[in-house]
């Protein structure tokens, strides 16, 4: 069946199985592979995207539930890849293997939109749903502080 939704500002119509997770639709049908499959059980955060401005697990949301709504993926943060959070991430070399980082960045961007100047505790709470097996947590925290400073 066809589902209409907006991905990164563009209206798209996708021919999907209605019980397909949003993540499948984003990666396999829309061809946006920046969003990663991690656990498939809503536990790790690698698949985080924004739905109507709120950060969510795309592996645990049926694509049908996203019909008529606005999805933002990592590709949609900035056309040139220079969203302040992405810039801070690069400057501090946050990523090690990098697999979880797109989900981390989506959580970080959502946090900064809600709270432009977060404390360490705010960051820990907002990022608690994102797992990094390389243990880049301290650099993630630094990069969020840096992005907050750069934006202000």
């Amino acid at each position: 069946m066809a589902i209409e939704l907006t991905i990164n500002g563009q209206a798209v119509s996708l021919d999907v199985e209605p019980d397909m997770p949003l993540l499948w639709a984003i990666r396999d049908l829309a061809g946006l592979t920046g969003t990663k499959f991690g656990c498939g059980k809503a536990l790790c955060g690698a698949c985080n995207v924004h739905l109507d401005g709120q950060v969510m697990r795309s592996c645990a949301i049926p694509v049908s539930a996203a019909a008529g709504r606005k999805v933002t993926t990592i590709e949609g943060l900035a056309a040139d890849g220079n969203h302040p959070v992405q810039v801070a991430w690069r400057e501090l070399n946050v990523a090690q293997c990098g697999y979880c980082q797109s989900g981390q960045i989506m959580s970080a961007v959502a946090l900064l939109e809600r709270n432009p100047n977060p404390s360490d505790d705010d960051i820990d709470a907002a990022m608690s749903g994102n797992i990094c097996r390389c243990g880049t947590y301290t650099r993630i925290r630094q990069a969020i502080h840096k992005a907050a400073e750069d934006r202000s």
Binding site: A42, Q54, V55, R57, I61, S107, G129, N130
Partner: peptide, 9 residues
């Protein structure tokens, strides 16, 4: 419950 992204949904 869950993490922040699960609580948003």
């Amino acid at each position: 419950i869950g993490g922040p992204q699960v609580r948003n949904v």
